[in-house]
């Protein structure tokens, strides 16, 4: 009697992202049933596991905007055989990177001190809060990235095509209507 093939282990996380790519991941709809036959989830918002363990595939949504993002991203790189930048923010910094031409202190003051309706506001400095970086970076500027899946968010069909290619051992390819940057 042959044993069923080992399930691939996948971890996912959102760094400086909006979880839109994760929502789009859920948009593969009924393919989720096929997917769970082939894979099991490690750290992910779907499992609520807090630390990433050894995995085959890591999906990173969002860019790198603070010290905790760097920490999580490096842990994913250490543990995942294949690391994937999922969505526009992981690929080029995306919306959060629009603050890159402004001094960080100005951004923080604008939000926590000068915003209308705020009285006696101060910039949060609790030691538990991760320190923001001066610029938001796409993940390939911090760790080596194996594949990039652009889109804001990448569509469900694009994510499904990408994952099925990868799981089947093919080089993932998004052509025709599946490749979008918006």
């Amino acid at each position: 009697m042959s044993t069923p093939p080992r399930k691939l282990r996948i971890a996912t996380t959102s760094l400086a992202g909006c979880f839109g790519c994760h929502m789009s991941f859920l948009d593969i709809d009924e393919h989720l049933f096929e997917l769970v036959e082939l894979v099991e989830f490690d750290r992910s918002p779907l499992t609520d596991i807090k630390e990433v363990g050894p995995c085959d595939i890591g999906l990173i949504e969002g860019g790198v905007c603070n010290a905790e993002n760097v920490h999580v991203l490096r842990a994913f790189r250490r543990n995942c055989k294949t690391l994937i930048a999922l969505g526009a923010c992981a690929v080029n910094g995306g919306l959060p990177a629009q603050r890159n031409h402004l001094p960080l202190s100005e951004c923080l003051r604008e939000v926590y001190q000068f915003r209308p309706g705020i009285a006696n506001g101060q910039i949060p400095n609790d030691p538990e809060l991760p320190l923001p970086l001066d610029k938001v970076r796409p993940i390939h500027e911090v760790v080596r990235v194996d594949y990039f899946l652009p889109g804001c968010p990448p569509s469900g069909p694009a994510i499904w095509k990408f994952l099925t290619d990868l799981i089947a051992g093919r080089t993932p390819r998004l052509s025709g209507g599946l490749l979008h940057y918006d």
Partner: peptide
């Protein structure tokens, strides 16, 4: 953007300048 699609540009590859 359309040329990015045509030539299947998936990654920025280089470091961003953010000018």
């Amino acid at each position: 953007q359309a040329l990015g699609y045509e030539y299947e540009m998936l990654s920025p590859r280089f470091r961003h300048f953010y000018p």
